[in-house]
Amino acid sequence: MRAITTRMFVTLDGVVQGLGRPDEDTSGGFIHGGWGPQYNDEVMGRELAKEMAKPGDMLFGRRTWEDFITDWGRETDGNPFTTHMNAATKYVVSRTLENADAWQNSILLRGDAAEEVAKLQAQPGNDLSINGSASLVRSLHAVGLIDHYTLLIHPLALGSGKRLLDGPAPLTEFELTGSVATPKGVIIAHYTRR
Rank of each mutant, 00 (worst) to 15 (best):
S135W: 09
H154C: 05
Y149M: 02
A122R: 09
L145E: 09
D127N: 15
L158M: 05
P155Y: 10
P124G: 06
P124K: 06
S139W: 00
P170Q: 13
G167H: 12
P124Q: 08
L140T: 07
P155K: 04
P124V: 06
L145W: 14
E173C: 08
I130G: 00
F174W: 15
G159K: 03
I153A: 07
S135C: 01
P170E: 14
P155W: 07
L176D: 10
S135T: 11
G167T: 11
V143T: 14
L171T: 15
P170C: 06
L136E: 00
L120P: 13
L145F: 14
L120V: 14
N126Q: 12
S135V: 10
V137D: 00
L145I: 14
Q123P: 07
N126H: 13
S160E: 15
G125V: 11
L140D: 01
T177D: 14
E175F: 11
I153Y: 12
V180W: 11
Q123W: 11
S135N: 11
L120F: 15
K162D: 04
I130M: 00
Q121Y: 03
L152S: 02
I153W: 11
L136T: 03
F174E: 02
L152C: 02
R163W: 04
L120S: 08
S135A: 10
S135P: 03
G178Y: 13
E173M: 12
Q121R: 15
Y149V: 05
I130P: 00
L158I: 07
H154W: 10
Y149R: 01
K162Y: 09
V137L: 03
G178F: 12
S179I: 11
P170L: 06
S129G: 09
S179Y: 15
G125H: 13
N131S: 03
N131E: 03
G125P: 08
T177W: 15
P124S: 11
T172K: 01
A169N: 07
L151P: 01
G167V: 13
D166L: 02
S179P: 09
V137Q: 01
G132Y: 05
Q123V: 05
L145Y: 14
G144T: 10
V143I: 06
L171V: 15
S133Q: 03
R138E: 05
L120K: 07
K162Q: 08
R138H: 10
D166P: 05
P124R: 03
L136Q: 00
V180S: 09
E175N: 11
G144R: 09
I146G: 00
R163S: 00
R138V: 07
R138S: 07
H148M: 04
L156Y: 01
L120D: 09
H154E: 05
F174C: 09
L120N: 05
S129W: 11
R163E: 02
D166Y: 06
N126T: 05
A134H: 04
T172F: 10
L128T: 05
L164K: 12
L164M: 14
L140G: 07
Q123R: 14
L152K: 01
L158F: 12
L151R: 00
R163D: 02
P170T: 12
D127H: 14
L120M: 12
T172M: 02
R138T: 08
S135M: 08
L151T: 04
P124N: 08
L152M: 13
T177R: 15
L171P: 12
L128Y: 02
S160N: 14
Q123K: 14
G167Y: 11
T150I: 07
L165S: 08
R138I: 07
